[in-house]
Amino acid sequence: MNQSGEEKVNELSKILLEVGSLLMSSGANSSRIRMTISRIAGAYDYDVDLLITHRALMLTIYNEERDYFFSRLKRTSPHGVNFKMVSGISRMSWRIVEENWGMDQVQKELDRLKSLPHYPRIIILAMVGAAGAGFCRVFGGVYLELLVTFVATFIGLYVRQEAVKRSFNPYLAIFFAAFVSSMIAGLALKLKVGPNPEYAFATSVLYLIPGVPLINSLSDLLDGNIMNGIVRGVNGLMISLSIALGMLGAVLIYGI
């Protein structure tokens, strides 16, 4: 504590904000962010207060005994759901408490978590395609329609990934994906492939549904983080609107 307490607080605040911003962009809800940050700060005998918003985090560290506080603000990076990060940070926070980790150890673990790879692209595409086919099956489709949904989902997700890579607006990327998917499934509907091609059409865009923003929105509202809940809910609505507009494009072109 005596040895340059200020530097220590400075380093701790950087780590805490990094943890918070990683959690926010990986799809954790507000109470989890608050809980994890307090837990890590508690392990180093500091108290923190947090202001959590969608695009920025503000943190004040204070020490009652020495009447000292320190504030810092950090912008959060663009959102992309990554549960490996959430799970890794949660495990790390418990190990900090139980194994008395030093701060450089924490920083090293954060760097390791950030470098963890995503699943290979082809596996993501194939599995999400299979999930789309699964939805179609649950709706009551037959195997021919499942195939249509698989192809529509596979290509639609590919388009979305490419659009995100070319840094299009995220809602526009979802619009493109929804449009391409429903153009493919709509073609099957137009050519009357299988007995109920409308099932394929309805399920071909389900992989875009904003499940994480909407569920987090409701759980934030339930926790009393009303502002964050509203922000996440509006984000979810914007995504739904993009999907609907993409489908509308296909509906208008095919006249179905």
Partner: peptide, 8 residues
């Protein structure tokens, strides 16, 4: 499918 998309 969604689990893989969310990188669990």
């Amino acid at each position: 499918g969604f689990a893989i998309l969310f990188n669990v």
